[in-house]
Design a binder for these strands. Structure first.
Lengths: 205, 205
DNA sequence: TTGACAATAGGTGAATATTCCTATTAAGCG
DNA sequence: CGCTTAATAGGAATATTCACCTATTGTCAA
């Protein structure tokens, strides 16, 4: 945690609430100039740090927790993962071409950022992945991770279908997605039919 | 985040590294008396806050991240979960009577504290819970949670055996633990034979 | 354009944290 | 016990942040 990280975190916190650093200070009952760029280092270039008490008042004023601010300071992502239902996930407008969630308005589920990966949560419906995933379970999905055969993945087809499967085979001619539930057959796709594959990192139990 | 939370977090950080508040200050190159209880409020009872710069130096000295400290301040647990192998888990001295891990020296796995639960991680060996858990998967276990039939649980028997199972039945006369892998039979225990049951919250995929 | 307001720079005094000092108490050790 | 060290309390001097002040610039809307 360095001097510049603190100020970057403070700016990010302000931006997260639609405020400027100045507006954030005003809202916290502090002097509006307290977070001025000119106040972030002394005349001799010595770094200036906001006091812990000022940080506490800022966090109080916007209703954020200390840990959320710290996540901003550390520059980590994924402390909060957006939660999406499979029914919604099939609709357009929820993911970009790379499989990352876009837009807002989702419920948020507190999830532990692993490293710096960008993740989101999906709520399971259906029984094709029983017994590993039961309806209502939540899975944490990383659209940025590499997938290899054997991984549990979320796939989106060009038809808009979103499903959690086991990646059985993947080559230039075919992408095979297996269900754990033997009542469901393995489905075979041609690569162009799969819009994206995202690896499942965690599953609630 | 309140005044007492900051100081509690600082004490917890020190304790986490086997130090006192005084020792932590010394290690950070600060005055050893800087964190004295007598310096935590002024003569008039006005609260005193450690400066952000002092916090930064403290975190630097012990190699902790700001977010870890914030988790301590917020009173949340589980940002870091100790990782234990099943082979070790069966030995004595790794858990207390309530099923909480004790002692130290484990590898630590970064895990996202959900709520305020105390959690730890176990690495799966064996195939009795295939296909849900494969050897090498990591499960996040909460010894403090209530367990009910249908939950995936970790159980420890009086024989010292530690296993991940599905809780099939639990009443005053019997505790039935089922495997997901049909090749393994359901095992039935009498309640006194089970030392503790801990619910599995998450599983890596 | 003009007016109101936000954001910002720069400076000063007040408020407050830290260091440095001394003294006391407690804990470990030969 | 006697010795050393850590932890702590209390106080004074120093260092730094904050609130307050003034002035400038930019934005937005009437």
């Amino acid at each position: 945690m360095k001097h510049r990280d603190i100020w970057r975190g403070l700016d990010a916190l302000a931006a997260h609430h639609g405020l400027t650093a100045s507006g954030l200070a005003r809202r916290a009952g502090l002097d509006p100039t307290a977070f001025n760029p000119s106040k972030r280092e002394g005349a001799d270039g010595r770094p200036r740090w906001p006091s812990t008490e000022s940080l506490a008042r800022v966090l109080e004023s916007v209703g954020s927790r200390f840990e959320d601010f710290a996540a901003l300071v550390d520059g980590r992502r994924g402390a909060i993962a957006p939660l999406i239902g499979f029914a919604q996930a099939g609709q357009d407008g929820f993911f970009d071409d790379a499989g990352f969630p876009v837009g807002g308005g989702w419920e948020e589920v507190r999830f532990p950022g692993l490293e710096t990966e960008s993740v989101y949560a999906l709520e399971i419906s259906g029984d094709s992945m029983e017994p590993a995933y039961r309806a209502g379970d939540r899975i944490i999905v990383s659209p940025g991770s590499e997938v290899k055969p054997g991984d549990r993945v979320v796939a989106k087809t060009i038809d808009g279908e979103v499903m959690a499967k086991v990646l059985a085979r993947k080559n230039t001619r075919t992408v095979d997605l297996a269900s754990l539930n033997p009542a469901y057959p393995t489905r075979s796709f041609k690569p162009p039919e799969i819009v994206w594959l995202a690896r499942i990192l965690w599953a609630s139990q």
